[in-house]
Design a protein around this nucleic acid. Sequence first.
DNA 1: GAAACAAAACTGGTCAACCAATTTTATAAA
DNA 2: TTTATAAAATTGGTTGACCAGTTTTGTTTC
Lengths: 246, 246
Amino acid sequence: MTRDGTKRRYQEIAELLARRITEEGYRPGDKFPTERQISLEMGISRSLVREAFIVLEIEGYLDVRKGSGSYVAAGEKISLNVQKQDFGPFELLQARQLLESSIAGFAASTITKNDIIQLRETLEIERRAIENGVEDYFADRQFHLQIAEATQNSVLVDHVEDLWTKRENSSMWARLHDRIFDLSYRTRWLDDHAVILEALRHRNAEQARLAMWQHLENVRLTLLELSDVGDPEFDGYLYTPAVASP
Amino acid sequence: MTRDGTKRRYQEIAELLARRITEEGYRPGDKFPTERQISLEMGISRSLVREAFIVLEIEGYLDVRKGSGSYVAAGEKISLNVQKQDFGPFELLQARQLLESSIAGFAASTITKNDIIQLRETLEIERRAIENGVEDYFADRQFHLQIAEATQNSVLVDHVEDLWTKRENSSMWARLHDRIFDLSYRTRWLDDHAVILEALRHRNAEQARLAMWQHLENVRLTLLELSDVGDPEFDGYLYTPAVASP
DNA sequence: GAAACAAAACTGGTCAACCAATTTTATAAA
DNA sequence: TTTATAAAATTGGTTGACCAGTTTTGTTTC
């Protein structure tokens, strides 16, 4: 329906045809008249019928096959694939390993003294959080984000942000959350961060790339360890391998 | 999706446009590009765009008004996301150079024979398009996307898709569009693609990484050349350097 | 008669041209 | 300057022609 309440042409035709399917004894798998047949029958162009068919396909009434014809479907609604996706933690880590290590390497050539100072402050926040037994998800996230920001490329920043958003939306990761922050792994990861920072400070791209890779590899191994304790829900996520070391 | 898993064309386009609406900060009431604009931009007929618009209208993304245009509708699916981000072409290319070359390198270790065949087909579509002097934005996009898909990591696919979405939404890039597709550069880029494909076929990660880097460097140099003809609007975009060769 | 192959007649897919409603711009009158 | 009105430009709406896969049909061969 358009705003003023009038139906668009294709919508009208689609409703007519939908009624035909539901009220005239069509059953799933039955062949429906072709676009040409209906256009002749209704005295309209085939394009209009085609548009109506698209509606019927989306609404789950029809299954349209090129070269063959259209068939009555008994299906659920087809929906656009744009809603939030749920990525597995290992797939995510694989992607981070590949992308963030490249970004860290690049950042080594663009990083400023001020960036180093800010990273050092973030690291200190992380250290104190662990010391006090407080959760520090935000600082962890910020550390990685600041490295992306050091590239002075907003596209890269956007992508790293997206990686963390995906992680926050990952149902599997949410399930692991408690196990992760409960343990001493975070101390190791803090050391990892320090190594990365040192590499960046020396503007050593190769070393920064490797340090970031190793850090995420450590996270990956931790997750493997944690998810291996008998939770069958992780089947299918376990076999995503690490990317090769840079 | 049809029964055999392949998406119908209009659906592919609809998803592309839906992403554009949800992820690039369109707000209810905002005017959306016209059917003609998008058909030109994508190098496809308006009929295809029109079919995609019908899907978007049904799904509640768009409000289509005859004689006036299409407007973003106030539906649940519209994200409350803030302002539209407009990335500069050189910043985008820098990011692509860094990310896509890494991805190409990784893909060299995961690619299958079937992937190679499909890439070869895409390359052939590109070749024919150039031969006939026809624009084929989709094939170019698809080539890069297929490489990401060869990694079998949906996060990486998502990120490459996002890079192209950002490009489609880049106002600067839109301004350059005509100049780019008017020239013989596309032939060189086709050759670049062939070189990348060869490297992937030999499963040579180092070579694939380099070939992708070089390809995007060529695109970057072309853009530099085109934007250097006296358009003052490109100030500020010109100084984004290439990332170091891998 | 059965199997293999070729051709032709279907099918949906894509396109460019034209139609009709709306918006914008130009012009004239107040 | 403001308003009214008409013309032009821009938008989505509709059409018929042609393209590209499928299915059916006809022919050949054994």
